[in-house]
Design a protein around this nucleic acid. Structure first.
Lengths: 193, 193
DNA sequence: CAGATACTATGACCAAGTATTAGGAGTAGA
DNA sequence: TCTACTCCTAATACTTGGTCATAGTATCTG
Protein backbone atom coordinates (compact mmCIF):
# COMPACT_ATOMS: atom_id res chain seq x y z
CA UNK A 1 0.00 0.00 0.00
CA UNK A 2 3.03 2.20 -0.17
CA UNK A 3 2.00 3.58 -3.53
CA UNK A 4 -1.50 4.40 -2.38
CA UNK A 5 -0.24 6.35 0.54
CA UNK A 6 2.10 8.23 -1.70
CA UNK A 7 -0.77 8.91 -4.02
CA UNK A 8 -3.24 10.23 -1.49
CA UNK A 9 -0.51 12.43 -0.08
CA UNK A 10 0.29 13.65 -3.54
CA UNK A 11 -3.36 14.47 -4.18
CA UNK A 12 -3.46 16.49 -1.00
CA UNK A 13 -0.29 18.30 -1.90
CA UNK A 14 -1.59 18.89 -5.40
CA UNK A 15 -4.74 20.66 -4.29
CA UNK A 16 -2.78 22.57 -1.68
CA UNK A 17 -0.24 23.82 -4.20
CA UNK A 18 -2.96 24.76 -6.65
CA UNK A 19 -4.88 26.57 -3.95
CA UNK A 20 -1.81 28.59 -3.09
CA UNK A 21 -0.95 29.35 -6.69
CA UNK A 22 -3.93 28.92 -9.00
CA UNK A 23 -1.91 30.10 -11.99
CA UNK A 24 0.45 27.14 -11.92
CA UNK A 25 0.59 24.89 -14.98
CA UNK A 26 0.58 21.10 -15.12
CA UNK A 27 4.20 21.15 -16.24
CA UNK A 28 5.26 23.03 -13.12
CA UNK A 29 3.09 20.83 -10.94
CA UNK A 30 4.70 17.75 -12.46
CA UNK A 31 8.18 18.95 -11.61
CA UNK A 32 7.16 19.93 -8.10
CA UNK A 33 5.50 16.59 -7.38
CA UNK A 34 8.21 14.65 -9.21
CA UNK A 35 5.74 12.82 -11.42
CA UNK A 36 4.86 12.98 -15.10
CA UNK A 37 2.54 15.55 -16.55
CA UNK A 38 0.07 12.79 -17.35
CA UNK A 39 -0.13 11.80 -13.71
CA UNK A 40 -0.83 15.36 -12.77
CA UNK A 41 -3.62 15.50 -15.31
CA UNK A 42 -5.12 12.25 -14.06
CA UNK A 43 -4.91 13.55 -10.52
CA UNK A 44 -6.64 16.78 -11.48
CA UNK A 45 -9.31 14.77 -13.25
CA UNK A 46 -9.80 12.66 -10.14
CA UNK A 47 -10.06 15.72 -7.93
CA UNK A 48 -12.22 17.61 -10.38
CA UNK A 49 -9.75 20.48 -10.61
CA UNK A 50 -9.99 22.33 -13.91
CA UNK A 51 -7.04 23.40 -16.04
CA UNK A 52 -4.92 26.41 -15.19
CA UNK A 53 -6.54 28.73 -17.71
CA UNK A 54 -10.00 27.82 -16.50
CA UNK A 55 -8.93 28.43 -12.90
CA UNK A 56 -7.58 31.84 -13.77
CA UNK A 57 -10.71 32.66 -15.72
CA UNK A 58 -12.89 31.79 -12.75
CA UNK A 59 -10.77 33.80 -10.37
CA UNK A 60 -11.02 36.82 -12.61
CA UNK A 61 -14.74 36.36 -13.09
CA UNK A 62 -15.34 36.01 -9.39
CA UNK A 63 -13.23 39.05 -8.67
CA UNK A 64 -14.95 41.28 -11.19
CA UNK A 65 -18.31 40.12 -9.87
CA UNK A 66 -17.25 40.93 -6.35
CA UNK A 67 -16.00 44.36 -7.30
CA UNK A 68 -19.24 45.02 -9.08
CA UNK A 69 -21.43 43.90 -6.23
CA UNK A 70 -19.55 46.12 -3.83
CA UNK A 71 -18.95 49.05 -6.14
CA UNK A 72 -22.23 49.18 -7.99
CA UNK A 73 -24.63 49.01 -5.13
CA UNK A 74 -24.14 51.99 -2.91
CA UNK A 75 -25.39 49.90 -0.02
CA UNK A 76 -23.42 47.20 1.75
CA UNK A 77 -25.62 44.14 2.09
CA UNK A 78 -28.86 43.48 0.29
CA UNK A 79 -31.62 46.02 0.63
CA UNK A 80 -34.82 44.08 1.06
CA UNK A 81 -37.16 46.81 2.15
CA UNK A 82 -37.03 50.60 2.12
CA UNK A 83 -39.46 53.33 2.89
CA UNK A 84 -37.51 56.41 2.01
CA UNK A 85 -37.41 58.83 4.88
CA UNK A 86 -38.75 56.29 7.32
CA UNK A 87 -37.27 52.83 7.66
CA UNK A 88 -35.42 50.04 5.89
CA UNK A 89 -34.05 46.55 6.24
CA UNK A 90 -30.88 45.13 4.80
CA UNK A 91 -29.51 41.59 4.95
CA UNK A 92 -25.85 40.67 4.78
CA UNK A 93 -24.32 37.20 4.73
CA UNK A 94 -20.99 37.21 6.49
CA UNK A 95 -18.10 35.04 5.39
CA UNK A 96 -14.61 34.22 6.55
CA UNK A 97 -13.11 37.00 4.41
CA UNK A 98 -14.79 39.46 6.76
CA UNK A 99 -13.43 37.85 9.89
CA UNK A 100 -10.23 37.53 11.87
CA UNK A 101 -8.65 34.30 10.76
CA UNK A 102 -7.79 33.05 14.22
CA UNK A 103 -11.20 33.49 15.73
CA UNK A 104 -13.61 33.62 12.78
CA UNK A 105 -15.18 36.63 14.46
CA UNK A 106 -16.41 39.18 11.96
CA UNK A 107 -14.55 42.46 12.16
CA UNK A 108 -16.58 45.26 13.60
CA UNK A 109 -16.31 47.57 10.66
CA UNK A 110 -18.27 45.21 8.40
CA UNK A 111 -21.23 45.32 10.73
CA UNK A 112 -20.78 49.06 10.98
CA UNK A 113 -20.64 49.33 7.19
CA UNK A 114 -23.95 47.57 6.73
CA UNK A 115 -25.66 49.72 9.32
CA UNK A 116 -24.06 52.95 8.15
CA UNK A 117 -24.86 52.50 4.49
CA UNK A 118 -28.42 51.55 5.32
CA UNK A 119 -28.80 54.63 7.48
CA UNK A 120 -27.46 56.85 4.71
CA UNK A 121 -29.68 55.17 2.11
CA UNK A 122 -32.79 55.94 4.12
CA UNK A 123 -32.33 59.67 3.94
CA UNK A 124 -34.30 61.07 1.05
CA UNK A 125 -31.75 63.50 -0.37
CA UNK A 126 -29.36 63.86 -3.28
CA UNK A 127 -26.36 63.49 -1.04
CA UNK A 128 -26.32 62.22 2.52
CA UNK A 129 -23.30 61.92 4.77
CA UNK A 130 -22.72 60.47 8.17
CA UNK A 131 -21.96 63.09 10.78
CA UNK A 132 -21.66 61.09 13.96
CA UNK A 133 -22.26 57.52 14.96
CA UNK A 134 -22.57 55.83 18.30
CA UNK A 135 -22.54 52.08 18.10
CA UNK A 136 -22.46 49.14 20.44
CA UNK A 137 -21.50 45.57 19.68
CA UNK A 138 -23.57 43.30 21.88
CA UNK A 139 -22.04 39.99 21.01
CA UNK A 140 -19.37 38.72 18.59
CA UNK A 141 -20.60 37.66 15.17
CA UNK A 142 -19.21 34.45 13.70
CA UNK A 143 -18.35 34.20 10.02
CA UNK A 144 -21.30 32.63 8.22
CA UNK A 145 -23.98 34.24 10.33
CA UNK A 146 -26.63 36.25 8.57
CA UNK A 147 -27.02 39.82 9.71
CA UNK A 148 -30.37 41.55 9.44
CA UNK A 149 -30.19 45.28 10.04
CA UNK A 150 -33.34 47.30 10.61
CA UNK A 151 -33.06 51.08 10.54
CA UNK A 152 -35.58 53.73 11.53
CA UNK A 153 -35.46 57.47 11.22
CA UNK A 154 -36.40 58.60 14.70
CA UNK A 155 -35.84 62.28 14.45
CA UNK A 156 -35.27 65.11 12.05
CA UNK A 157 -34.20 68.70 12.39
CA UNK A 158 -33.77 70.59 9.15
CA UNK A 159 -31.00 68.74 7.26
CA UNK A 160 -30.08 66.57 10.20
CA UNK A 161 -31.57 63.10 10.58
CA UNK A 162 -31.31 60.70 13.49
CA UNK A 163 -31.30 57.09 12.38
CA UNK A 164 -31.39 54.13 14.72
CA UNK A 165 -30.15 50.79 13.53
CA UNK A 166 -30.54 47.43 15.22
CA UNK A 167 -28.80 44.42 13.73
CA UNK A 168 -29.94 40.94 14.61
CA UNK A 169 -29.07 37.34 14.05
CA UNK A 170 -32.17 35.20 14.37
CA UNK A 171 -34.02 37.73 16.49
CA UNK A 172 -31.04 38.18 18.79
CA UNK A 173 -29.65 41.71 18.89
CA UNK A 174 -25.97 41.78 18.10
CA UNK A 175 -25.42 45.42 17.26
CA UNK A 176 -27.16 48.68 17.93
CA UNK A 177 -26.23 52.07 16.59
CA UNK A 178 -27.38 55.65 16.34
CA UNK A 179 -26.35 57.59 13.26
CA UNK A 180 -26.68 61.29 12.69
CA UNK A 181 -26.90 61.76 8.96
CA UNK A 182 -26.80 65.06 7.11
CA UNK A 183 -28.47 65.82 3.83
CA UNK A 184 -26.06 68.03 1.93
CA UNK A 185 -26.64 70.13 -1.16
CA UNK A 186 -23.08 70.80 -2.06
CA UNK A 187 -20.31 68.52 -0.83
CA UNK A 188 -18.00 70.57 1.29
CA UNK A 189 -20.80 72.01 3.39
CA UNK A 190 -20.16 71.99 7.08
CA UNK A 191 -21.05 68.85 8.93
CA UNK A 192 -21.26 70.44 12.33
CA UNK A 193 -24.50 70.11 14.19
CA UNK B 1 -8.77 59.48 -45.85
CA UNK B 2 -12.03 57.66 -45.41
CA UNK B 3 -10.30 54.41 -44.50
CA UNK B 4 -8.14 56.09 -41.90
CA UNK B 5 -11.11 57.53 -40.16
CA UNK B 6 -12.78 54.16 -40.13
CA UNK B 7 -9.66 52.66 -38.68
CA UNK B 8 -9.18 55.11 -35.84
CA UNK B 9 -12.82 54.72 -34.94
CA UNK B 10 -12.43 50.98 -35.00
CA UNK B 11 -9.44 51.19 -32.70
CA UNK B 12 -11.45 53.25 -30.26
CA UNK B 13 -14.32 50.83 -30.36
CA UNK B 14 -11.93 47.93 -29.98
CA UNK B 15 -10.44 49.18 -26.74
CA UNK B 16 -13.86 50.15 -25.49
CA UNK B 17 -15.30 46.72 -26.12
CA UNK B 18 -12.31 45.03 -24.53
CA UNK B 19 -12.55 47.28 -21.53
CA UNK B 20 -16.17 46.32 -21.05
CA UNK B 21 -15.56 42.62 -21.52
CA UNK B 22 -11.93 41.68 -20.96
CA UNK B 23 -12.68 38.00 -21.51
CA UNK B 24 -13.64 38.47 -25.16
CA UNK B 25 -11.61 36.63 -27.81
CA UNK B 26 -10.23 37.93 -31.08
CA UNK B 27 -12.73 35.83 -32.98
CA UNK B 28 -15.65 37.50 -31.20
CA UNK B 29 -14.07 40.91 -31.62
CA UNK B 30 -13.67 40.26 -35.33
CA UNK B 31 -17.34 39.49 -35.77
CA UNK B 32 -18.38 42.51 -33.72
CA UNK B 33 -16.15 44.90 -35.66
CA UNK B 34 -16.91 43.22 -39.00
CA UNK B 35 -13.26 42.72 -39.87
CA UNK B 36 -10.98 39.71 -40.05
CA UNK B 37 -9.27 38.19 -37.06
CA UNK B 38 -5.93 39.28 -38.44
CA UNK B 39 -7.04 42.88 -38.47
CA UNK B 40 -8.12 42.60 -34.86
CA UNK B 41 -4.73 41.16 -33.95
CA UNK B 42 -2.90 43.91 -35.78
CA UNK B 43 -5.08 46.47 -34.05
CA UNK B 44 -4.36 44.96 -30.66
CA UNK B 45 -0.68 44.96 -31.48
CA UNK B 46 -0.89 48.62 -32.44
CA UNK B 47 -2.71 49.48 -29.23
CA UNK B 48 -0.50 47.29 -27.11
CA UNK B 49 -3.46 45.28 -25.84
CA UNK B 50 -2.44 41.76 -24.81
CA UNK B 51 -4.33 38.62 -25.72
CA UNK B 52 -7.50 37.54 -23.98
CA UNK B 53 -5.83 34.95 -21.76
CA UNK B 54 -3.21 37.41 -20.63
CA UNK B 55 -5.90 39.96 -19.85
CA UNK B 56 -7.80 37.43 -17.77
CA UNK B 57 -4.62 36.41 -16.00
CA UNK B 58 -3.88 40.01 -15.08
CA UNK B 59 -7.40 40.59 -13.83
CA UNK B 60 -7.16 37.54 -11.60
CA UNK B 61 -3.71 38.53 -10.37
CA UNK B 62 -4.84 42.02 -9.54
CA UNK B 63 -7.88 40.70 -7.73
CA UNK B 64 -6.00 38.18 -5.64
CA UNK B 65 -3.47 40.87 -4.75
CA UNK B 66 -6.28 43.12 -3.63
CA UNK B 67 -7.91 40.41 -1.57
CA UNK B 68 -4.58 39.60 0.01
CA UNK B 69 -3.82 43.17 0.93
CA UNK B 70 -7.15 43.39 2.69
CA UNK B 71 -7.37 39.90 4.08
CA UNK B 72 -3.81 39.18 5.13
CA UNK B 73 -3.13 42.20 7.21
CA UNK B 74 -5.46 42.30 10.14
CA UNK B 75 -5.26 46.06 10.03
CA UNK B 76 -6.92 48.26 7.42
CA UNK B 77 -4.39 50.76 6.20
CA UNK B 78 -0.65 50.65 6.71
CA UNK B 79 0.62 50.43 10.25
CA UNK B 80 3.59 52.76 10.45
CA UNK B 81 4.10 52.96 14.18
CA UNK B 82 2.86 50.94 17.13
CA UNK B 83 3.61 50.92 20.81
CA UNK B 84 1.52 48.03 22.01
CA UNK B 85 -0.76 49.06 24.83
CA UNK B 86 -0.09 52.72 24.25
CA UNK B 87 -0.40 54.32 20.83
CA UNK B 88 -0.15 53.76 17.11
CA UNK B 89 -0.38 55.42 13.72
CA UNK B 90 -1.79 54.03 10.51
CA UNK B 91 -1.90 55.53 7.04
CA UNK B 92 -4.48 54.77 4.40
CA UNK B 93 -4.62 56.02 0.82
CA UNK B 94 -8.20 56.43 -0.30
CA UNK B 95 -9.32 55.78 -3.85
CA UNK B 96 -12.47 56.05 -5.89
CA UNK B 97 -13.47 52.46 -5.11
CA UNK B 98 -14.03 53.59 -1.55
CA UNK B 99 -16.22 56.50 -2.49
CA UNK B 100 -19.69 57.29 -3.73
CA UNK B 101 -19.42 57.59 -7.46
CA UNK B 102 -21.47 60.71 -7.79
CA UNK B 103 -19.62 62.75 -5.24
CA UNK B 104 -16.23 61.06 -4.86
CA UNK B 105 -16.74 61.33 -1.13
CA UNK B 106 -15.25 58.41 0.75
CA UNK B 107 -17.87 56.30 2.52
CA UNK B 108 -17.81 56.62 6.24
CA UNK B 109 -17.25 53.00 7.01
CA UNK B 110 -13.81 53.00 5.38
CA UNK B 111 -12.64 55.72 7.70
CA UNK B 112 -14.27 53.87 10.56
CA UNK B 113 -12.56 50.65 9.50
CA UNK B 114 -9.11 52.19 9.60
CA UNK B 115 -9.71 53.68 13.03
CA UNK B 116 -11.41 50.59 14.44
CA UNK B 117 -8.77 48.13 13.30
CA UNK B 118 -6.02 50.38 14.60
CA UNK B 119 -7.74 50.63 17.97
CA UNK B 120 -8.09 46.87 18.17
CA UNK B 121 -4.49 46.32 17.11
CA UNK B 122 -3.22 48.50 19.93
CA UNK B 123 -4.63 46.30 22.64
CA UNK B 124 -2.01 43.88 23.83
CA UNK B 125 -4.10 40.71 24.00
CA UNK B 126 -4.67 37.47 22.15
CA UNK B 127 -8.12 38.53 21.08
CA UNK B 128 -9.56 42.01 21.20
CA UNK B 129 -13.04 43.05 20.16
CA UNK B 130 -14.77 46.36 19.80
CA UNK B 131 -17.52 46.85 22.35
CA UNK B 132 -18.75 50.34 21.60
CA UNK B 133 -17.67 53.15 19.38
CA UNK B 134 -18.59 56.80 19.23
CA UNK B 135 -17.36 58.57 16.16
CA UNK B 136 -17.70 61.91 14.51
CA UNK B 137 -17.01 62.84 10.91
CA UNK B 138 -15.74 66.41 10.85
CA UNK B 139 -15.53 66.96 7.15
CA UNK B 140 -16.06 64.85 4.00
CA UNK B 141 -13.03 63.02 2.67
CA UNK B 142 -12.43 63.07 -1.07
CA UNK B 143 -11.19 59.99 -2.89
CA UNK B 144 -7.41 60.25 -3.25
CA UNK B 145 -6.82 61.94 0.07
CA UNK B 146 -4.40 60.29 2.46
CA UNK B 147 -5.76 59.49 5.89
CA UNK B 148 -3.44 59.44 8.88
CA UNK B 149 -5.03 57.91 11.96
CA UNK B 150 -3.40 58.31 15.37
CA UNK B 151 -4.74 56.24 18.23
CA UNK B 152 -4.03 56.43 21.94
CA UNK B 153 -5.11 54.23 24.79
CA UNK B 154 -6.44 56.73 27.28
CA UNK B 155 -7.88 54.45 29.88
CA UNK B 156 -8.01 50.92 31.08
CA UNK B 157 -10.11 49.02 33.54
CA UNK B 158 -9.41 45.34 33.78
CA UNK B 159 -10.13 43.90 30.30
CA UNK B 160 -11.70 47.10 29.06
CA UNK B 161 -9.64 49.63 27.12
CA UNK B 162 -10.57 53.12 26.01
CA UNK B 163 -8.93 54.10 22.75
CA UNK B 164 -9.14 57.52 21.19
CA UNK B 165 -8.51 57.90 17.49
CA UNK B 166 -8.02 61.09 15.53
CA UNK B 167 -7.76 60.90 11.76
CA UNK B 168 -6.21 63.75 9.83
CA UNK B 169 -5.54 64.87 6.32
CA UNK B 170 -2.53 67.21 6.26
CA UNK B 171 -2.87 68.14 9.93
CA UNK B 172 -6.56 68.87 9.53
CA UNK B 173 -8.83 66.71 11.67
CA UNK B 174 -11.44 64.90 9.61
CA UNK B 175 -12.56 62.19 11.99
CA UNK B 176 -12.51 61.58 15.71
CA UNK B 177 -13.60 58.49 17.52
CA UNK B 178 -13.66 56.79 20.88
CA UNK B 179 -13.54 53.02 20.95
CA UNK B 180 -14.12 50.77 23.90
CA UNK B 181 -12.18 47.60 23.18
CA UNK B 182 -12.36 44.40 25.19
CA UNK B 183 -9.58 41.91 25.57
CA UNK B 184 -11.21 38.50 25.53
CA UNK B 185 -9.79 35.15 26.51
CA UNK B 186 -12.42 32.96 24.96
CA UNK B 187 -14.53 34.24 22.12
CA UNK B 188 -18.10 34.21 23.30
CA UNK B 189 -17.37 36.02 26.54
CA UNK B 190 -19.73 38.77 27.37
CA UNK B 191 -19.00 42.13 25.86
CA UNK B 192 -20.97 44.09 28.41
CA UNK B 193 -19.16 46.69 30.41
C1' DC C 1 1.86 -16.17 -10.69
C1' DA C 2 -2.32 -13.26 -11.92
C1' DG C 3 -4.66 -9.24 -11.46
C1' DA C 4 -5.29 -4.81 -9.83
C1' DT C 5 -3.50 -0.32 -9.23
C1' DA C 6 -0.45 3.26 -10.29
C1' DC C 7 2.32 5.59 -13.31
C1' DT C 8 4.29 6.88 -17.93
C1' DA C 9 4.31 7.43 -22.86
C1' DT C 10 2.48 8.49 -27.30
C1' DG C 11 -0.26 10.53 -30.70
C1' DA C 12 -4.23 13.06 -32.40
C1' DC C 13 -6.69 17.03 -31.59
C1' DC C 14 -8.19 21.86 -29.91
C1' DA C 15 -8.36 26.97 -28.70
C1' DA C 16 -6.31 31.06 -28.85
C1' DG C 17 -2.91 32.92 -29.68
C1' DT C 18 2.29 34.97 -32.06
C1' DA C 19 5.01 36.09 -35.97
C1' DT C 20 5.85 36.46 -40.67
C1' DT C 21 5.12 36.84 -45.40
C1' DA C 22 2.31 37.73 -49.32
C1' DG C 23 -1.30 39.73 -51.98
C1' DG C 24 -5.49 42.52 -53.26
C1' DA C 25 -8.33 46.94 -52.81
C1' DG C 26 -8.89 51.64 -52.53
C1' DT C 27 -7.11 56.08 -52.48
C1' DA C 28 -4.08 60.13 -53.20
C1' DG C 29 -0.52 62.63 -55.48
C1' DA C 30 2.64 63.39 -59.51
C1' DT D 1 -3.51 57.40 -65.73
C1' DC D 2 0.13 55.30 -63.33
C1' DT D 3 2.48 54.68 -59.17
C1' DA D 4 3.02 54.50 -54.32
C1' DC D 5 0.89 54.03 -50.26
C1' DT D 6 -1.92 52.45 -46.47
C1' DC D 7 -5.28 49.23 -45.11
C1' DC D 8 -7.09 44.98 -44.83
C1' DT D 9 -7.14 40.02 -45.55
C1' DA D 10 -5.10 35.62 -46.12
C1' DA D 11 -2.03 31.78 -45.52
C1' DT D 12 1.40 29.37 -43.09
C1' DA D 13 4.32 27.78 -39.40
C1' DC D 14 4.93 27.68 -34.57
C1' DT D 15 3.59 28.01 -29.31
C1' DT D 16 1.11 27.04 -24.85
C1' DG D 17 -1.51 24.49 -22.18
C1' DG D 18 -4.31 21.81 -22.33
C1' DT D 19 -8.22 17.21 -23.61
C1' DC D 20 -8.98 12.47 -24.79
C1' DA D 21 -7.95 7.84 -25.75
C1' DT D 22 -5.02 4.14 -25.85
C1' DA D 23 -1.20 1.37 -24.82
C1' DG D 24 2.68 -0.06 -22.18
C1' DT D 25 5.39 -0.64 -17.89
C1' DA D 26 6.08 -1.12 -12.85
C1' DT D 27 4.85 -2.50 -8.59
C1' DC D 28 2.54 -4.50 -5.13
C1' DT D 29 -0.56 -7.89 -3.16
C1' DG D 30 -3.31 -11.74 -2.37
Amino acid sequence: MKAKLRKSERLKKLSKVIKEDPFITDRELASILRVSIQTVRLDRLELGIPESRERTRRLAQEATDKVKSVGTGEVIGELIHVELGQEGISVMETDKDMAFRRTSIVRGHHIFAQANSLAVALVDAEIALTGTATVKYLRPVKAGERLVARAKITGRNNRKYVVEVITKINREDVFIGEFIVFAVERPGDSLDA
